[in-house]
Every structure is written in structure tokens, then in C-alpha cells.
Design a protein around this nucleic acid. Structure first.
Lengths: 344, 344
DNA sequence: TTGTACGCGTTATCAA
DNA sequence: TTGATAACGCGTACAA
């Protein structure tokens, strides 16, 4: 009838206490603030702890201490190398400070993201890392009511009040677009990921328009193609651009993956890059430098961003005050895929 | 003096109970098994819940229910696309069943992995996903003592008793090596990640030797170069092979990243692939098909593995019994980087 | 420095 | 169907 259950002799504080002949309070102190305990008793307690293989019960600890030492993060997807990279650094930094990562992904879906945020809070996340600002105000209200400190990453927008550790997507793309225009390009197209609920992508697109305006050109000239994230979708988008606007001499993509797709499509169509058409990316993930031709792109310090984000969150948990927003610099990586505009 | 703290009016069960004029027990029942509660009282309670914005306290729930609905995973690193991909699917499947992912990474370091395992258990992981079998027996004993069901992924070895959802690394590489040998290659080198504490890498290397033996050749002829994971290290390893064993006609790498490094080094050295030398990878990540020449490799169903692993773990949490190990099939992706051996 | 004792918010048992 | 009430295991004032 009954399962032959293994005897799970999970020891409690009380077990340790009786073995060491002290009170549970002393054991607790030994573990949490060892300096407030006499040296000999501490040794006795630690011995008992090891002997029993004691480890605190998580629920009890969380209940009494009112924190879980757990920090949540909701990212669009781990399959995007930029998030994997940033999150790896984020997690490493958390670990260094005794915090654990609670992770969920939204698949770039706003509604799913909200669910995940609520799930992580329900699971006791002490603080949260979210990607980008764009989000229903209701969610932010929820987070505030629950008292969960929240940090934005991957975006930095001086116009927003919320604390962020990220970079100015719009300014970064604007800088790149200036270089593109400086190469004589005027008929520029942009392949972007969906901009709805995504201020990063939207900012990047705006950056291109900014540069057009600066150059005295009509920002409406920029052809915009929205498509989901992926190499295949990047290829399709490229074909669409060339079909509808064959005069295009430069295609700026809001990320490297779409750009690699564009590169492939160009080759398939017999177009030389950059002689016939220029292509740029964004992020500077590994394939950018491996691509043929090597991709001109915007380098983003993903690891540093992840690390700093973790630090901010750890700070706010300690000091109960969230630091200032931090803008990280991006750099243009000028490589082969951007060249002078071909003569019309 | 005092912080101007926001009034965090986090409501408890008792608050809901008094507002709805019922006992806390009834509220708890309402939330956990609504069918055991009268319809009218249930409505009254639910109204109070919504009105107060009540959400259960996680610590208290975990303490009383003795489970956290959280599943832990320790992977080498998220920056490796294979793990990112598998874990993404793992997390999605967990989410579908109301479970949350607690994630840590070991950086391929056995000692760090042990720390992380203990940390996740301390954070209340109900079950654990680990990569590969290789691990100090002490860790497995710890997990058993704590009663934390553990599943192995990325490996499947019929000789091991522990439950796993993965593939037979050795057999997969053996199959690929057979094809390499069938192309006339005899002087084969292998670039591998460190094999210590890594049965996956070790199995893949062994697979090459197996095929050599099958072909009546001396397995000791295979030159082995161990190097950390990375494109740059793959390049270096390639140079080392060509310097020490210029007769080599095929280089089999235990993963695609090392193989891409080998491809780059070959090009830099003026060697044509596959005319002068063949290169193979393992994993079939995105860059394998993007590489030039396209990389012959072993396709691994990472997403399915992640999904199935999640299912297994969810099952064991429900039924208290871990299912059988599951071997997933791999497939050889024959592409351009493998060709006939050059004439000596 | 150490111990006592209570509170943390739920779940679950047992009566009613 | 509902309500008291006892765990659950730990942290922490407060007292000694």
C-alpha cells in the first residue's frame, strides 16, 4: 500500500539545538550573525550542524525573515543571445552576493509578461529585473503596492522617471544612422522587430528618423518593415524591401539576427554587400563578427549591464533605496557591411 | 529620521476572512479547493480577495504546504546556445504547469556546481534538473537525503541507473565518426572541451575511438586536444593540431562553437575545407548552418529535451515516482565541411 | 553571551 | 459546509 518512502530525516533548528545543548535562538544566531556568539559554543553548534547536515527550511526562513533572497527576472527569451549573455552576468553577480535567480520569459508577449511578473512576485521575489520600460501602468502599480523594487534594463531614457540600467537605444541608432548617411546613403530602409510594447525597437527606429531630420532629409522616406525576430524573417523582410523599394542603398536592422538574415538574402539575390547595398545590425553578438561580410553594428555591453543591474538590485535590498539610473555607453563597430552608397 | 516608507498594506488571509465574515480556513479552502465551499460564501470571499488585492504570502504557504512549486536547474552557462535553447523550452513547459524556474550556472566548474545545487535546494527547489551524470556521489546523497527528486539531462547512458532525459553522446559521435572514416579519413584529430567532470564531452571523444576500433584502426591514433569552450580556443586548438600533426585530414570537434573556430583557423592558414581538411561539429546550433562552409554536425533536439525534462519533473512531483529514462534520437546533418580525405 | 517566548501567514485536522 | 486551532520552522525582541 504505502510508498516505500525514504526516511527523510530533515533536521530542524531544534534538532541542532538539542544536539549542541543550546537554545534554537543561539543556533539561529550562529548561522546568521556568528560574531554575536561565543567562540566555543559556536564551534559546538557548527559541529552539530555538520553532523546532522542541517540546512534551514526555506519556507520558515522566508516567513520569519520576510525575504527570500531571491531575485526575479522576466526576459523576452533566453534564445536571444543578448539576453542570455546579460542574464548570465546578472546571475553570476547575484550568486556572488548569496542571491538566487528566479527566471521567466515572455516570448515578447505583453500579456504573458504580466503573468510571469505576477508569478515571480507570488513566488516571493524580493526584487525584479524587467526589460525595457513599455508596460501597462497597472503592472507598475501592482509592483509598488506589493513593495517589490523593480529595475529596468536594456533601456535608458532620460525622459522616463523609472530607474534603469541600460543604454539609449535611440541615441545609439541615431549615431549609427549618421554614419550611414555620411556614406552618402539617402534611401534607407529599416527592418525592425515589432515595436508595440517594445520601446527598445521603437527607439532604434526613431533614431534613424532623427538622423534623417538632422541631415535635412525627410524622415518619412525611411521604409519600415516590421517582422518577428529571426534569421528567416530577416531574409523575407530584405526581399520585401528590395521588391518594394529597389532604390534602397542601405538597410538598417534593429538587431544582428535580422541583419544576418538580410545578409543572406542579399547574397541569394546576387547583391554584393556593401558594394550594391549596405547592411547594419545592432547588439554586436558573436555572429556579427563571424558573418561574411562582417557586420557593422552597435556594440552593447550586455555583460556589464547584467552585472550592474544585479548590483543595483542588491543595493536596494540592503539600503531600501534604489540608486540613480545608469546609462551605459554603446560603441559603433564599423566593419565591412557598411560602405558608400552606390551611384544611382 | 524615519524613511518615508510607502504604506505596504499587504493583506493577509485574516484580512480577507474578516472582510468576508468567514474564517481563515474558509478563505484558504476557497483558494485551494473552491469546490469544497458553498457557492455564495465563495463569491463573497472572492469579492473580498479582489477588493483587497490579496495574494498569498509565499513563505507562509511554503512552510505550511511543504512545497514551493519551484524547480531548480543548474546549467554550465546560458551563454552556450544549446543550454539557452533547452532551458527556454524547459521554462516554458514549467510555466504551463504553474511551476517557476530557479536558475543557476556553474561555469563548467564542479565545485561551483555543488554550491549552486545546495543554494537552489536551500531556496526551496522542489526538484532539480542537472546536466550530465558526472558528479561527486556526495552530492547525490545530499539530494536524496533532502528528498529532492533530480533529473539528468543532456546525457543518456544505459549503463547509468539514474533517471535521465537525453541522448547517447558516445553513440552519436560514433555514428558521425563512422561517416568520417567512410570518407577515407584515418588521421583524425579531436578538439574537445575539458572532459573532467563532463561525461558528455568524454562520451563524444570515446565515440570517435569506438569507430576507429570498429574500422580496425588504432584508437590511439586519434590526436586529442582539450581546450575551454569558445571560438578563439577552437582556432588555437586547430593551429596546434596542424602544427603537431600535419597529416591530419579530419578534425572532429565536440561542439559547433569549437568547430566554427576550427573553420576560421583553417581559412586563416589558407586551408580549404573540405578539400584540404574536413571539420565536423556537434549540437547543430544556428551558426552551424550559417558557417562557410556549412558545418557537418550532429543535430540534437534541445527544445524537445527541455520540454520532456520539465514534464518528467512535474510528474514526479505529482505522483511521487520518477519515470523511466528517455533516450532522444540525434541526427547527423551532413553538410559541406566534411568531404573525402585528401590523398596523402 | 545566552535563553525564553512570541509572531510570521498558511495549511490541514478535527469537530461542529 | 464551516470554524477553531494546532502545527510548520525560523527570527528576534526582550529578559536574564
Amino acid at each position: 500500500m504505502s510508498q516505500n518512502e525514504v526516511e527523510k530525516s530533515v533536521p530542524t533548528l531544534a534538532d541542532v539545538a538539542s544536539l549542541a545543548n543550546v537554545s534554537t535562538a543561539t543556533v539561529s544566531r550562529c548561522l546568521n550573525s556568528p560574531d554575536r556568539v561565543g567562540k566555543d559554543t559556536r564551534e559546538r553548534v557548527m559541529k552539530a550542524v555538520n553532523e546532522l547536515g542541517y540546512a534551514p527550511n526555506f519556507g520558515a526562513q522566508a516567513l520569519a525573515a520576510r525575504q527570500t533572497n531571491t531575485i526575479g527576472a522576466v526576459i523576452p527569451t533566453m534564445e536571444n543571445a543578448v539576453f542570455a549573455r546579460g542574464l548570465q552576468a546578472f546571475q553570476e553577480e547575484l550568486g556572488r552576493h548569496g542571491k538566487t535567480l528566479l527566471l521567466a520569459s515572455s516570448a515578447y508577449d505583453a500579456e504573458l509578461e504580466e503573468q510571469q511578473i505576477r508569478a515571480l512576485v507570488a513566488r516571493g521575489a524580493d526584487a525584479l529585473l524587467l526589460i525595457g520600460y513599455d508596460r501597462e501602468p497597472e503592472i507598475y502599480r501592482f509592483l509598488e503596492k506589493r513593495g517589490v523594487p523593480t529595475l529596468i534594463a536594456w533601456s535608458f531614457n532620460p525622459a522616463e522617471t523609472r530607474t534603469a540600467v541600460g543604454f539609449d537605444n535611440r541615441a545609439a541608432m541615431r549615431a549609427l544612422a549618421r554614419d550611414v548617411i555620411a556614406q552618402g546613403h539617402r534611401n534607407i530602409a529599416c527592418i525592425t522587430a515589432p515595436t508595440r510594447s517594445n520601446d527598445r525597437a521603437r527607439g532604434r527606429v526613431e533614431g534613424i528618423r532623427d538622423a534623417k531630420v538632422e541631415a535635412g532629409q525627410d524622415p518619412a522616406e525611411v521604409m519600415i518593415v516590421e517582422t518577428p525576430y529571426g534569421i528567416g524573417t530577416g531574409e523575407e523582410a530584405f526581399r520585401q524591401v528590395m521588391a518594394q523599394a529597389p532604390d534602397t542603398t542601405a538597410i538598417m536592422c534593429v538587431n544582428d539576427v535580422l541583419a544576418v538574415g538580410a545578409l543572406r538574402a542579399a547574397r541569394a539575390l546576387g547583391l554584393r554587400v556593401p558594394e550594391d547595398i549596405s547592411v547594419t545590425g545592432f547588439d554586436d553578438i558573436e555572429i556579427a563578427a563571424l558573418a561574411d561580410p562582417e557586420l557593422t553594428t552597435v556594440h552593447v555591453p550586455h555583460r556589464e549591464m547584467g552585472r550592474r543591474a544585479a548590483q543595483r538590485l542588491i543595493e536596494v535590498l540592503q539600503d531600501n533605496v534604489m540608486g540613480q539610473s545608469k546609462e551605459l555607453p554603446t560603441e559603433i563597430r564599423m566593419r565591412q557591411s557598411l560602405g558608400p552608397a552606390r551611384k544611382a
